[in-house]
Design a protein around this nucleic acid. Sequence first.
DNA 1: CATCGGACACTAACCGCACT
DNA 2: AGTGCGGTTAGTGTCCGATG
Length: 315
Amino acid sequence: MQINPITEMKTECVIADVLTQEIKQTGSRLIKMRENLNAYHQRQVNATPPTKNKFVNQTNIGGFAEDDPRERIILDWAKVHYKDYTSINTFPFHQYDVKPKITAGVVYLCLKKHSFIQQNETTEYRVMDAYFRFNGNLQYMCEDLGLTVWIVAKTVEKLGYSPRWHEYRESRYATRSSSGTSAEMKFKQLVPEAVDMNEDYRENNPVYDFIVNEKTVDVKELTALLRKDSKQQYYDFKFPKNDEERADFYCLFLCHDKQARMKGSFDVLLIPQEALPINKGQTQISVNETANSHKFFYQFQVDPTSLAYMLGCEP
DNA sequence: CATCGGACACTAACCGCACT
DNA sequence: AGTGCGGTTAGTGTCCGATG
């Protein structure tokens, strides 16, 4: 089958336009999702008293005073409504104005004490147990469970709770070693909401560097190469051939100056997975503005200052 | 216990030939 | 001229065991 290159080019442009539109819409959706998440997170924070301790003391589990009215309230509710540990979310927290407050953690500990919750070895159970033991601290949960942060966070979500990405990020930054200017540093600067996946959880070989609003982003810093044969300058962009291994977005920092790199000027392209060629693992992005590859990929150029917005973060 | 170094892994940079 | 693509090279970081 013959394909007219002009027609194909036009089709690609149309696809690019549609995708650009799609990114904007996705951005709006993500903003909405984030708002919901924030509201949920706020409720969680209010519901769980913060602790300075790394661990919630195990001996305190279920340690209600003899006359603690909360225990009776929870047990009365559990006799009628408890099915399994996901029922905790359905507890009518707002109905009881007692002090100390009844929180999800309190309900859990009480139910565990009275053997409503049967200990088992499912991932869900272990994650939930760790969630309450470590007050939702992702870092400690991961260390304790030996699971990757991504699996833990997803399971937390599945159980109806909100993974505390923000707190996790801060904890990572505290122990980070600074390694000069790079695209990843720049990305973090431009998208402060981004969760860095690169350094501490390599076990499962994440193919992405960051998670932003539940979307995976792989950041690449490239400088133009000069082809010896055709004297053309281009950026060599390699990515996984297989769809499943690809990140949701590729954020390319195309440096103009080989020596200055990120210290000099650069273009930022935010390329959605859907725009990448199928069954291919690499492509070239020509520096020449008239080249097809340039025109196609530069449709995904974003202003560095609007990068966070494009990824669905609040302005 | 700290630290040194080799094996290994990952990535950007680069090469060169093929094809249109 | 422009692109596709498989491969190599170089630089860097990590892991882990040997060593003192």
